[in-house]
Design a protein around this nucleic acid. Structure first.
Lengths: 141, 141
DNA sequence: TATCGACATTTGTATATACAAATATATTTT
DNA sequence: AAAATATATTTGTATATACAAATGTCGATA
């Protein structure tokens, strides 16, 4: 009956990937109302709360590589939600007015996502799990 | 000090993705000796143990979508490690001799991967975690 | 038997992400 | 100041993966 009942379900590789995909799916759904994929939404939120933030800093905060951040920013720039200004070797990222307008909707998406997984997993359980997962991630650091 | 200490580290989206990426990295490293990415390796192993297995069945076992399986098989076919035979609507996948030769190396990679994460996380801890993660994944199903 | 629907697979296109190399600038060393 | 090194970002290319639509086939039913 369990969906994870495959011959691989004892392997951390499959377990973690399967969980991440499910969570990603839930997040994508929750972010539909802002018409943004989750990673774009979180990045834009961060830029809104830290005007002029640099890609390297975003990379650090989001635990992604700088190249990934460049790619995400490109997409947001195409949609006119952020702009980049380059001075020397550093780049600053700012939200456009159009990007700023999106903030309430994005907050709602974040809230909805959290609400959804809290409902499914339970508040206690999901918090504990997040902490536990973070601990593992750190150990693998 | 903790790498997960970003303003997002309480969010399941970031936690699960960060963990999955770390684990993926470890797996990729472990699979270097077979010169295969982990997903290719696990698929080939599965084909070796189930000659003629169909893509749909592989998708189910690996908890991936059929289209993803098609893509993986294509790559393995390019490397002459598997072949597909189509009869009517069903497709059978078989390992080539070259693919068969790889089995011992792949077993070693799987073992190495497991050993690595067991060393880092502890045997008890990692088993418990895998089970716990599977439970969450099922709930999100 | 002609059609319609169910099933299996593939294709087009998209997101998410990384590594290594390239680029460009800033800082330190000699 | 010239050269070497360090820092920040971007680009080229690759893996991992999905959804929706297309394709092709099998079976049931009108």
């Amino acid at each position: 009956m369990k969906s994870s009942s495959s011959r691989f379900n004892k392997c951390l590789y499959f377990s973690t990937n399967a969980l991440a995909r499910k969570v990603e799916k839930l997040a994508v759904e929750s972010w539909k109302k802002a018409d943004l994929p989750p990673s774009h939404g979180y990045l834009l939120t961060m830029v809104l709360e830290n005007p002029g933030i640099q890609p390297g800093c975003i990379a650090h905060e989001m635990q992604l590589t700088p190249s990934t951040i460049t790619r995400l920013i490109e997409k947001l720039e195409e949609k006119k939600l952020v702009i980049r200004t380059a001075e020397g070797k550093i780049t600053n990222v700012y939200a456009t007015p159009k990007g700023k307008e999106l903030l309430p909707k994005m907050k709602a998406c974040m809230g909805e996502f959290q609400k959804k997984y809290t409902e499914i997993l339970g508040a206690e359980e999901s918090m504990r799990m997040v902490q536990h997962i973070n601990k593992l991630t750190d150990k693998l650091g």
